[in-house]
Amino acid sequence: MTFRLFVLATALMAGCAPAIASMTISGTRVVFPGTEREVIVRTNNKGKLPALVQVWVDDGNTNANLNQVKVPFLVTPPVFRVEPGKGQSVRMIYNGMTLPEDRESVFWFNMLEIPPKANDDGTGQKLELAFRTRIKIFYRPSAIEKSNSEFEKNKLQWEAVNDDQQGLGIKVTNVTPYYFSFDSINVMYQGRKIALDIDMVAPASSRVFYPKNKLSGTEKISSLEYRLINDYGASNGKKLNWSAGKGFIANNN
C-alpha cells in the first residue's frame, strides 16, 4: 500500500532544502482602492515543472472553515495550471460586502501550490510538499484613498511602559485610519540594540511590543528606531530619541 504524506509549508522546511516553491506572487501586499471594482494579482511559475494552483481570500483565521468565512473579495480563476516560465493573472473582485468607510480593513490572499505526483522511490512512501504563500490585502475606502500610512507615520504615538510580568515594552498608539506594518523596532538599551517582537497595529488602536528577553527600567533607554513597510513592500525608517521627562522625540537629523 502506498503511503503519501502531504505537508503544507509557508517557507523552506528544515531538512528539505531541495524542496522549494516554484510559484511566486508579484508584490508583497495588495492595496485595494475603494473606488475600484477589481484588481489584478499576478502569479508566476519560476520552476521547471507545471504547477497546479489554488487561490482564495480569508480573514486571517487560518483554521476557519473556508465555506463559512465571510470576505469581501472573490478570486477567479480559483484553481489553475501554470506552465514553467509562465504566469497567470488572478482577478480579485469586490463583492459589495459592507466595510468601514473611515478606516482600512485587512484580509489575506492565499496561494497554494499543489505539487506534481511524486515518483515512487521503491519504499512505498512518498513525500509531497504543498507550499502556501500568504500576503495581506488592505481595503482602502475612497474617503482615505488619496493618502497612505507612509504619510501618516508621524502621527504614531510612542510610549515606554513597564509590565510586572513582561517587563519593559514599547506601546504604539495608532490614531490614523491606516494599518501600520513594521519591518523592525529596535531600542537602544544601555548601549545595546534590542529588537522587539512586532506585528501590525490596526487603525485607532494600541499595541505593546516586548523583546524576547525580559528587560526593565525605562531610564535605561536612549533611543528607538523603527522601519515601516509601505504600499510597495519597501521599508523606510525613523529614529526617536528618548527623554525621561518628554518621552520619545523625533530625530530629524
Rank of each mutant, 00 (worst) to 15 (best):
Q88L: 08
A130F: 10
T98Y: 12
M111H: 09
L127N: 07
F107A: 08
L129T: 02
S105I: 06
D120T: 14
E113V: 03
V90E: 00
K136M: 15
D120R: 13
S89L: 11
V106T: 14
W108P: 07
A118E: 14
W108G: 10
F109N: 05
V106E: 15
D102I: 10
V90N: 03
S89K: 11
F107N: 00
I135V: 01
S105Q: 05
R103T: 01
M97Q: 10
G87K: 02
G96F: 13
K136H: 15
D121R: 07
R134N: 07
F131C: 03
E128Y: 03
G87D: 07
N95F: 08
E113C: 00
Y139V: 11
N110K: 10
K126A: 13
T98G: 14
K117H: 13
D121T: 09
A130I: 09
L129P: 02
D102E: 15
N110C: 12
I114H: 10
D121N: 14
V106A: 15
Q125I: 12
V90S: 05
G122H: 04
R91V: 09
I114T: 13
K136Q: 15
L99C: 01
M97P: 02
R103G: 03
D120F: 08
M97L: 14
F138R: 08
S89E: 14
L112G: 02
E101Y: 06
P115L: 04
D120C: 14
S105K: 03
E101F: 06
V90Y: 00
I137T: 04
T133P: 01
T123D: 06
E128D: 08
S105Y: 05
P100K: 02
S89P: 08
I137G: 04
I114Q: 11
G96E: 13
R132P: 02
D121H: 11
A118H: 10
F138S: 06
K126C: 09
S89A: 14
L112A: 01
P115F: 05
D120A: 14
F107V: 10
E101T: 10
F131I: 00
P115W: 04
M92T: 03
A130T: 13
L99Q: 01
F131R: 00
L127G: 07
I114A: 11
F107Y: 12
F109T: 04
D120Q: 13
F109Y: 00
N119C: 05
I114V: 15
G87E: 07
A118T: 14
D121Y: 05
F109W: 01
E113D: 03
N95I: 03
F109G: 03
S89F: 10
I93G: 08
N95V: 07
N119M: 08
G96D: 10
I137R: 02
E128T: 01
G122N: 09
T133A: 08
K136N: 15
N110V: 06
A130Y: 12
L127R: 07
I93F: 09
L127W: 07
G124A: 03
F109C: 06
D102R: 10
K126L: 11
Y94E: 11
N110G: 07
R103W: 05
T123C: 05
N95M: 06
G124Y: 03
E128H: 04
V106G: 12
A130G: 11
E101M: 11
